[in-house]
């Protein structure tokens, strides 16, 4: 176990490791951003379907609703670590490999999509039913109501939900080290935990805290911008 008594040592050490830190930060951001993007592409439509097919809603279809609801529940029950390993063959099918940062994006997306779906579902259910009824009375189609009423009205809430998703994915992504996915979590485990390098561990945690803070602030800012109440 190394000791750092002079602050200078700490800086020198960090300077040596800075390429690794920067690389890991980028890997984390890459995994997170791409996963959130794909998870939203899957999760938002899924959330919309869960809402509009619900009882009494504009496209009631209880069978479809129950089937999709069950799938979402099953996926959400998996511990991420297990999901990541279990999805190995699927990941290979999609991106050609089961290791590395890109390979991590597949399980991250699959884990986050049902999460996004539930958050979107909750957001859309908060939209005042009266507004939907008014749109129906104007002769709006299902698609028009989704695109022009439900999604815009729920936008501030969806943005905050996406913020939560992003932060959760950052958390999940730290487990990517297991499949050689890289990123800050991997770095913290390899240097901080296995080599007792507390400087690296503390630094990665600080970087994660900063990233989370920035994302939350941006989310709040955008949500406020869209909120006209």
């Amino acid at each position: 176990m190394r000791c750092y008594e002079v602050p200078n040592d700490v800086f020198t050490h960090l300077a040596t490791l800075s390429p690794e830190l920067i690389k890991a930060t980028w890997e984390t951001l890459y995994m997170t951003v791409v996963s959130v993007l794909f998870a939203s592409l899957l999760g938002i439509p899924l959330g919309v379907i869960l809402v509009v097919t619900d009882k009494g809603h504009i496209k009631e279809s209880l069978k479809l609703n129950q089937i999709l609801g069950s799938i979402v529940n099953v996926l959400r029950s998996f511990p991420f670590l297990i999901l990541m390993l279990a999805l190995g063959p699927f990941t290979r099918l999609v991106v050609g490999t089961t290791i590395g940062t890109t390979a991590t994006i597949v399980p991250l997306t699959i884990a986050a999509a049902p999460f996004v779906a539930r958050l979107v579902e909750t957001s859309l259910k908060e939209v005042n039913w009266g507004v939907v009824e008014a749109s129906l009375a104007m002769g709006a189609s299902t698609w028009q109501i989704i695109r022009k009423v439900l999604l815009p009205e729920a936008m501030p809430s969806i943005i905050l939900g996406t913020t939560i998703t992003t932060i959760t994915i950052i958390g999940y992504s730290t487990m990517a080290g297991v499949i050689g996915g890289g990123g800050l979590g991997d770095l913290a485990v390899r240097y901080g935990h296995m080599r007792f390098d507390y400087v690296v561990m503390v630094t990665t945690v600080i970087i994660l805290v900063v990233i989370v803070q920035v994302i939350q602030s941006l989310g709040n800012l955008f949500a406020a911008k869209f909120n006209k109440n």
Binding site: V131, E133, A134, A137, Q144, P152, E153
Partner: peptide, 25 residues
């Protein structure tokens, strides 16, 4: 149709709210 609780779209301006049924048609 008009409603007791107005049921306006909160994300749209007054102008856009009135434009809404015209967009639909």
């Amino acid at each position: 149709m008009i409603f007791q609780h107005f049921n306006l779209l909160s994300s749209r301006t007054v102008f856009e709210n009135v434009a809404f049924p015209l967009e639909i048609s």
